Computed example of a mutant assay.
Amino acid sequence: MDKIKVLFVDDDVTLGNIVTMALEDSGYEVHYQTSLTAIKPVIQELAPDIIVLDVEIGNKNGIDITPELKIIAPEIPILFVSSHVDASEVVKALNAGGVAYLKKPFEIEELTAYISRHTAAFHMQPMQIGRFTLNAEDNLLMKGEEVVKKLSVFESKLLKLLMLNMNKVVTREQIERELWEGGYANEQSLNNYIAKLRKYLSEDESLDLITIPKVGYKLSQN
């Protein structure tokens, strides 16, 4: 299963490494670079799902190069990050083609929320796991041409989150943040959702939905 690909360009190496590790831990594939050098061929070869672009990169400006990037990749959303909070700079960035302008310092959760919002089309693509396919658009769990289960919207979102973090632990806090939008998740309700997904996936013995006590859950494949 393909991961969402993020091209992250920022000349702050410390921040870049922290953000890269955090995004990878959240299930993204990240290509990080510290300059705009060869940015066009990188975009064409990598075909990222989103570009996270610093405004000031060395002596260059990410906003100024955006129109050129939009010519070669008009469909790829560009999310600007910057410590500059001047309104005119934000307007300039959005007029250049940016989808949003995130002000530094920012929380990783805030960044991932923007990435998730602007790569929503990716999540609508069918996702393969073992013998199953999750048709996210219609919330259908398929096995070949057979519909195994018409999932509820929440079941579909929860399964997608687990699939995007295949073989990694998804914490309860992450589920609350991403699926309950920061609200409190009822423990028994979440346990019930997990039990239902475990039942649906039981037809493929290579899959295992594991509960990590007091931590979260992990979807793995043998």
Rank of each mutant, 00 (worst) to 15 (best):
V90N: 11
D64F: 12
V170A: 05
G182T: 06
R117G: 01
I210A: 14
Q44M: 06
V19T: 01
K149T: 08
Y32D: 05
Y184C: 06
T211N: 10
I43C: 03
S206A: 10
Q44K: 15
E146K: 15
D10M: 03
E56K: 02
A185Q: 14
M124F: 11
S116T: 08
E155K: 07
E75R: 02
K60G: 07
I115A: 06
N135W: 14
Q125K: 07
I129E: 03
E181T: 10
A100W: 11
V99D: 03
N191F: 10
D2I: 11
E24G: 03
L53M: 11
Q44E: 04
I18E: 12
L207C: 02
I39Y: 13
V42F: 01
I115Q: 03
V85L: 10
D12I: 12
L79V: 03
K143H: 14
L134K: 12
I65K: 11
I78L: 06
P67F: 06
N17F: 15
L7A: 10
G97Q: 08
V6I: 15
I129S: 12
D64C: 15
L162T: 07
G58W: 14
K92C: 06
E110G: 11
V148R: 14
I51N: 02
P74G: 04
D12L: 08
P67I: 14
L164H: 14
L7T: 00
K70W: 00
E181V: 15
S206L: 14
L69V: 04
L7Q: 04
Q125T: 15
D54G: 06
F132A: 04
F80E: 01
M142P: 13
G27V: 14
L161F: 07
S88R: 06
I212R: 12
I39N: 07
S116F: 11
A185M: 04
D208H: 09
Y193D: 12
V147P: 02
D49W: 08
I51G: 00
M124R: 14
L53G: 15
A22H: 04
K149L: 10
K5Q: 13
I210G: 09
A100P: 05
E181K: 04
A113G: 10
P213A: 05
P105F: 05
L140R: 10
F122C: 03
N167S: 13
S116W: 13
N165M: 05
R131F: 09
Y217R: 04
V170G: 13
Y184F: 13
L159T: 02
V19R: 02
I50N: 00
I72T: 00
G16S: 02
L164Q: 14
